[in-house]
Computed example of a mutant assay.
Amino acid sequence: MKRLLILFAIIGGISVIYFVTQSKEFKKPNYYTASDCISVNAKYLADKTFGGISNVDLTLVNKVDEKFDYIEVKVDYIKENGEVFKSEIVPVQDMFSHDAKYVHAPDSPRGVSINVSISKAVSTELGTTLY
């Protein structure tokens, strides 16, 4: 943002007007990872006997003052032995400042638990993509 300052001085009986512009840089905060800006939690039903995950509901919260245009949430479906059965990417659009969004992730025929994380977050306001 630029400001115009008008300085008035009298030099040797002559009035002089100076026009000075000042430039002020607005610095955006430095965020290092997507999880610094966005939190994600999952609620789901797991069949511990036969395996399978259903009704996967994700809650995302934007913790910062900037909008995110696009977010990718990685959902890992974990088998009983701890191995990842499969991973899904759930896209989320337009996450406004300090906003919460609720999205649904796909069910899985196998797995007893899930891990969720933000794998990518794009913000034109920040001018960057966070991972």
Rank of each mutant, 00 (worst) to 15 (best):
K86C: 08
I10S: 12
N30I: 12
E25C: 03
G12I: 05
G12S: 14
K67A: 07
S54H: 04
F8N: 15
G51M: 03
E66P: 00
A105H: 01
V64H: 05
I6A: 11
L130M: 00
C37Q: 08
T21E: 15
S123F: 03
V40N: 04
L58K: 07
Y70A: 04
A121F: 09
M95Q: 07
G12K: 14
N41Y: 09
G13T: 05
D36V: 07
N62G: 12
D36N: 14
Y32F: 12
V103F: 00
S123R: 01
T33Q: 07
L126V: 02
L45Q: 11
V103P: 01
V122W: 06
P109A: 02
V92L: 07
L5F: 15
F96Y: 14
L126G: 03
S119T: 10
K63F: 07
V92I: 08
S54D: 09
E88G: 04
D94Q: 00
Y31A: 02
A46P: 05
V122Q: 11
S54L: 04
E80T: 06
L5H: 13
S23M: 09
I114Q: 01
V16Y: 02
N115H: 09
I17A: 14
P29F: 10
D65N: 13
S87Y: 02
K43G: 09
E125G: 13
S23C: 07
A121K: 05
K86G: 03
Q22K: 14
A105D: 06
V56M: 06
F85K: 06
I71C: 06
M95R: 01
N55T: 09
D107I: 01
I6F: 10
F85N: 14
T21Q: 15
Y102S: 14
Q93E: 11
P91D: 03
S97T: 10
V16P: 00
I11K: 13
V122C: 08
D99K: 13
L5G: 11
I38F: 08
T49Y: 05
V90N: 03
V56N: 04
L7R: 14
D47M: 01
Y131R: 11
D36L: 08
V61K: 15
K74Y: 04
F50K: 12
K74G: 04
D65H: 09
G82C: 03
K86D: 07
T59Q: 10
A34C: 08
V73L: 05
R110G: 06
K79Q: 07
N41S: 15
D94E: 05
V122H: 11
L45P: 01
N81L: 01
K2H: 12
K28P: 06
P29Y: 09
Y131I: 06
A105Y: 00
V92S: 03
P106E: 04
R3K: 15
R110E: 12
S54Q: 09
I17Q: 15
V122A: 08
C37G: 10
G127V: 02
R110L: 07
E66R: 03
N55R: 12
